[in-house]
């Protein structure tokens, strides 16, 4: 169980806004976060990953405090084992498809499985510059899964994929995430996206 109660100031054009979240996520659940741009979806995901520190509150994951403002607990990102798919992919320009995954894990069989899932098994020696937008986005998803994270945070992860590719990828992801028991949060500005897949929704 992931229990979150946090407050974080957001910088907005119209003065300051405060992002307040009180929410629990069941283990293995898939939740869609939706709402307009600038409503704090990305900030919330980064807070969970430990990349942004909230001003107040607590984050407790399976009984372990990841963050507690009063007790001054703030588990570093490296120790949270969260997979993160960045909106701009954040692929490493110096590494090939395979190297990006090898940087994250030494498990060759797992890398092979991921490459098949993302249909990148024929492009292992390509660097991100030589991939299409959709291929880059798939690689970003695969890389986030490489560490077999217990919590997967995805920021607009399917925006560059066509419908067919998206459907296929989601079908594969569903099975994989179930196997791993990964709790998944997916930010999307499109309210219709992921219909029928997510167990829950969270509006921003």
């Amino acid at each position: 169980m992931i229990s979150i109660a946090i407050e974080k100031k957001l910088k907005a054009y119209s003065g300051q806004q405060v992002l307040q979240i009180n929410k629990q996520f069941a283990p293995g659940s898939i939740t869609k976060l939706y709402g307009p741009s600038g409503s704090g979806k990305t900030t919330f995901l980064k807070v969970l990953a430990g990349l942004i520190t909230p001003e107040k509150g607590t984050i407790v994951v399976n009984g372990i405090a990841w963050f507690d403002a009063e007790a001054k607990i703030n588990l570093p990102t490296q120790k949270r084992n969260t997979g993160f798919v960045f909106q701009q992919y954040a692929l490493f320009p110096n590494m090939t498809v395979k190297q990006q995954l090898e940087y994250a894990t030494t498990d060759e069989a797992w890398i092979k499985q991921l490459l098949l899932l993302g249909k990148l098994d024929t492009l292992t020696q390509h660097k991100p510059d030589h991939l299409s937008g959709g291929q880059q986005q798939r690689l970003a998803i695969l890389r986030a899964l490489a560490t077999k994270p217990k919590l997967l945070l995805m920021d607009e992860p399917f925006s560059a994929l066509d419908l067919k590719m998206k459907t296929e990828l989601i079908t594969g992801l569903k099975i994989l995430l179930k196997e791993l028991g990964t709790t998944t949060l997916i930010a999307s500005h499109n309210a219709q996206e992921l219909e029928g897949w997510a167990d829950g929704e969270m509006e921003f």
Binding site: K46, A49, G50, L51, P76, T77, Q78, K79, R80, N81, T82, G83, F84, F86, Q88, A90, L91, F92, P93, N94, Y103, A104, R143, A144, A146, T147
Partner: peptide
Amino acid sequence: LPKALSEASYTLGKTEWQTFKSVLLPN
């Protein structure tokens, strides 16, 4: 360099030094 490059490396469990050596410097 985009800040997300280091952030991505941290989420993969890499230390600041590993990130500097394998991600930042080569780029």
